[in-house]
Simulated assay, not measured.
Amino acid sequence: MGIFDVLRALFGGGQPTADDGRTEPTDDESATTPDDDGAESTDDGGFRIPENTTRDERVPFGALAATNRAELHENAEEFAEFWSEYELDFTPSSIPDVDAMVATQQERANYLSIDLGDGYEGAVAPMASEPAAYFGEVMVRNYDAEWTFDEDFGWALQFGNGQIVNIFKTAHQALEGDPPFVMLHDTFVEDVGLDGDLLDTDGGRAAVMDVDEGIDPDDFDDEAIAAAAGERDAEELIEDVRGDAEDHVEAWPAYEFDYSVESLERLDELVTAEFSGPAFADAEVGSTDDEASILLTAHTVNAGSYFGEVLRRELGGSWRHTETDGLQLELPVSDGAARVSPIAMAESCLAGDDTFTDRYAGVREVLDEVGEQLESGD
């Protein structure tokens, strides 16, 4: 019996009754421990305790969801069969029915504590885990997504762009609020760029927990990276920065980055929403020692490149690269020019020390002052 089956037994899943479709657990069905075979790792990922997530000796929700991918598929099929009064046909259009079902069951969103042995225990709410398994299977069957066993999250959704989402934690975190799955679907369609239609064009977007880009710091060789950068000439580096700006636009379609000055307010909103949380509290731009730092560096470069392109398009000028000063944006002022470093400015903004809107205003102010001085001959 898999973990999902255990949870169904404990909370009455698969045994409909006359009142609400579920039965109460019996006194002797209070907890369980996976057997030795179920706890072993398999080529398919298998049930195991993720090495990086046993904080306070508790196991993440995704590690308790299934023992392998086949069981995840079976869990979703069983969920759809059990709730047959809803149209759960594994299409995106069925996701509103999942939310409708969750809305009728949230009062039963109690957590089950499971003793896993060796000092570890886990807790899971079936009213989050079961719908999450179905929702994940819908994403796998209809979009560029797959189940993966993540060393931080346990079973999670991985999208074609490399992002790994802790879907079971996200579902659990949403238990006390509105049913989350339509919001999750639309969040992924917009933020990941999935080829699908929004289910609720006027609805909100979900706070997705623990997004992992699937980056391994061990894959980054600092010396090799530095050597490769040193081989690129100024023209190639300038072409790169324009490409980085486009990457930024494509990565965040929900923010409608159109290179306008007004879009800098949305850029500040993005920084607050995505990079001001605890996940990046200890991250260091330029470091390749951990995933958070690598991600922060990449987003700093992309956001700085976008900011530089907004400056260039609005104020004129061009990108310049020298061995001494690196990559800068040269902006015209009176009969001369002033140089700024948009990526260095972005580092300050993503660190929370400044905003892009204030930086833009500052650049305008400096250019006006320098222009006045040049014109007066001071």
Results as ranks from 00 to 15, higher is better:
Gly2Phe: 12
Phe4Asn: 05
Gly12Tyr: 04
Asp20Ile: 08
Asp27Ala: 14
Asp27Val: 04
Asp28His: 12
Glu29Trp: 00
Thr32Arg: 11
Asp35Val: 05
Glu40Arg: 12
Gly45Glu: 08
Arg48His: 12
Arg55Phe: 15
Ala65Gly: 00
Arg69Asp: 02
Glu71Arg: 10
Asn75Cys: 01
Glu85Asn: 10
Pro96Met: 09
Val102Pro: 12
Gln105Arg: 15
Asn110Asp: 14
Leu112Arg: 13
Ala125Ser: 15
Pro126Asp: 13
Tyr134His: 08
Glu137Val: 08
Asp144Thr: 10
Trp147Gln: 00
Phe153Ile: 00
Phe159Lys: 06
Gln163Leu: 13
Ile164Cys: 07
Phe168Lys: 04
Lys169Pro: 04
Thr170Arg: 11
Thr170Ser: 15
His172Ser: 11
His172Leu: 10
Leu175Glu: 05
Pro180Cys: 12
Met183Trp: 02
His185Lys: 11
Asp186Ile: 07
Val189Gly: 07
Asp191Gly: 09
Gly196Ser: 13
Asp197Arg: 07
Thr201Trp: 01
Gly203Asn: 06
Gly203Lys: 07
Ala207Leu: 10
Glu213Trp: 13
Asp218Ser: 14
Phe220Met: 10
Glu223Lys: 12
Gly230Lys: 04
Asp233Ile: 11
Ala234Phe: 03
Asp240Lys: 06
His248Gln: 13
Tyr255Ala: 12
Ser260Tyr: 13
Val261Tyr: 10
Leu264Asp: 10
Val271Leu: 09
Ser276Asp: 13
Ala283Asn: 02
Glu284Gln: 12
Asp289Glu: 14
Leu296Ser: 09
Thr300Ala: 10
Val301Tyr: 01
Val301Ile: 11
Gly304Val: 00
Val310Gly: 11
Glu314Trp: 01
Gly316Arg: 01
Thr324Gln: 15
Leu329Val: 07
Ser334Thr: 02
Ser334Met: 04
Gly336Pro: 04
Val340Met: 10
Ile343Phe: 09
Ala344Leu: 11
Met345Gly: 06
Ala351Phe: 07
Thr355Val: 08
Arg359Ser: 15
Ala361Asp: 13
Gly362Tyr: 02
Asp378Leu: 14
